[in-house]
Design a binder for these strands. Structure first.
Lengths: 135, 135
DNA sequence: GATAAAGCCTGTAGTTAATACAGGCTCAAG
DNA sequence: CTTGAGCCTGTATTAACTACAGGCTTTATC
């Protein structure tokens, strides 16, 4: 067990969660993070539960969920959720990612192919330009 | 040789190039497409050279170039260009795409792994949620 | 010829997911 | 007491479009 700080300012929460300072305010605006309690001076104060939530959001983003999807996941977390629904969302996401990978792979092989045809000198003939201008 | 229409309205140019109607006006605003000649009624009129340019842009986008990069390519097309410069840009792009593919592949395998652990029933235990909430 | 629908014109706002900045307040250190 | 860090707010910017409002013009149909 490591000791856990219970209170965070906006800056320290951002650092602890590994997100940008302003991102927290942005998540607050779009409803992913709650309006936190304020210190007498108006400063936001956060606790460990906020850190968990923010790390959840960050990890979700890293897994390719959109903010809207993370909103859905958080609703499930906040309420009762069926594992089923979560799994469906995750698999749908994996499918979308697979498609993106395929598209990118096509893009890359097209690029590699035309770059390979390109002599690369100082000449004004270029296979890449030609290819893009093709009728 | 197919016969070629020499004149296009904005809408027909968009259709011919396979882009959205409004995209043309957007490209005009950011300087990728020129301010076209206008008919007496104020309507934009385009010729075959505009179609070529717009298709060039669309293909560049499909290959993952940003609009700024396409702007560079078009400057080269418009002026004199060294094949070298074009090739460098293309290969840099292929590298970026390769990185994106790697990132997505990692995302996908992480997602697949946690989804596989997920029982998927009506139970309120869910490996995906657990994983995202992990300390 | 009348009228309606389609297509064009303009400027502006909305989208996603943040990031950055200006102008001002507060707090801790030296 | 002053200086700097950190926080506050609201607004603007990014990329790459897309969509809409309000108003012409042109084309098609009756």
């Amino acid at each position: 067990m490591t000791s856990q700080k219970r209170d965070y300012s906006r800056g320290s929460l951002a650092a602890a969660a590994g997100v940008n300072l302003e991102t927290i305010r942005f998540y607050e605006k779009i409803g992913l993070m709650p309006d936190p309690p304020r210190a007498p001076n108006g400063y936001r104060t956060y606790g460990h539960e906020h850190l968990k939530r923010l790390v959840f959001i960050r990890r979700g983003r890293e897994l390719g969920f959109t903010n809207a999807e993370i909103g859905n996941l958080l609703e499930m977390v906040d309420g009762v959720y069926a594992c089923d629904d979560v799994k469906r969302l995750a698999l749908a996401n994996a499918g979308v990612i697979a498609e993106k990978i395929e598209d990118l792979a096509k893009m890359k092989s097209a690029l590699d192919a035309i770059a390979a045809q390109c002599s690369g000198g100082e000449t004004p003939e270029c296979a890449i330009i030609d290819r893009l201008l093709e009728e």
